[in-house]
Simulated assay, not measured.
Amino acid sequence: MTENTTQEDQWDSENYNTHASFVPKLGNTILAMLNAQSHERILDLGCGSGELTNDLAGQCAHVVGIDSSENMINKAIRIQRHKNTEYYVVDGQALSSWLTSKQIPLFDAVFSSAALHWMKEDPVAVIKGMHDALKPGGRMVVEAGGFMNVGEVHTALIQALNRRGLDGKSYSPWFFPSDVYYKQLLEENGFDVKDIALVPRPTHLNTDIAGWIETFGFTFLEALKTEQERQEAVREIVEQLRPGYQREDGSWHIMYVRLRVVAIKK
């Protein structure tokens, strides 16, 4: 079901599966931190193509998965394994208004893996939405990109646009806050932060850095007018990163820095 979408859907679930299937697999760490209980009703915020949502649904009473991408939600519905799961296309930055307009019952917990950093336009609205979604004393358990996340690739993408006379930073789609700043935002908006940390995680890519850029760096590439320009920019970035991030066996690795948070609604 589609509600409150705010932008063109730029995600392709099959391309994502090819170049980034490591993302839901590595989400098991934060899922374990959630420690879902069999009686609980849980919101999966930014559920993507639903792999982790399936795992979560096997642990609790009811799951609602939301994502801004209709393409991703359609795949999540196709691979759905449990009857206790509902999916909706919802922009996480419009979560509060969706909850009110649809009279959605409150949740015991909000879970999110590898999604909040895509909600750059209004991260405070996302926090307020999570607060509004929870019962008093309910918990949010999330993992997203934090300060210095994929820093080498992020910088290379910005520089590639700068070299072409564009403001590269303005095309970045990501919100990578420090633990200090994000804790402040949470406390200012009704949460008691129990645990927050930046966790470096060297990550082995499924394919290569070009595939990663095409999957996740699409807003940068779309700033370029022609396919030839886009291909040239990707080749430049690959060669810039190759000395430091391609292993001896040819595989590619980049440094993810994950912001992990456990907080309670006051």
Rank of each mutant, 00 (worst) to 15 (best):
5 T>L: 12
11 W>K: 11
14 E>K: 10
14 E>R: 11
16 Y>T: 10
16 Y>E: 11
16 Y>W: 15
17 N>L: 08
18 T>V: 15
22 F>C: 11
22 F>G: 05
35 N>P: 00
35 N>Q: 14
36 A>Q: 13
38 S>A: 12
40 E>L: 01
42 I>A: 02
43 L>P: 09
53 T>N: 06
53 T>C: 13
56 L>A: 07
57 A>T: 07
59 Q>N: 06
61 A>L: 14
64 V>F: 09
66 I>M: 09
70 E>Y: 12
76 A>D: 08
77 I>C: 12
78 R>M: 06
79 I>Y: 00
79 I>H: 05
83 K>T: 08
98 W>N: 09
99 L>Y: 01
107 F>E: 02
107 F>N: 01
107 F>K: 02
110 V>I: 04
114 A>Y: 00
116 L>S: 15
122 D>W: 04
125 A>C: 05
125 A>L: 05
126 V>Q: 00
126 V>P: 04
127 I>C: 05
130 M>Q: 07
135 K>E: 06
145 G>N: 02
147 F>H: 11
148 M>Y: 10
150 V>T: 08
152 E>M: 12
160 A>D: 01
177 P>I: 00
180 V>R: 11
182 Y>T: 00
182 Y>V: 03
184 Q>V: 15
195 D>T: 14
196 I>R: 07
197 A>G: 13
200 P>K: 00
202 P>N: 06
204 H>F: 08
207 T>V: 15
213 I>R: 11
215 T>R: 12
216 F>N: 03
218 F>D: 13
223 A>N: 06
226 T>Y: 08
230 R>N: 08
231 Q>I: 07
237 I>P: 03
240 Q>G: 14
243 P>G: 14
245 Y>G: 13
247 R>C: 12
248 E>L: 08
250 G>V: 02
253 H>T: 13
261 V>S: 07
263 A>S: 07
266 K>E: 15
266 K>W: 15
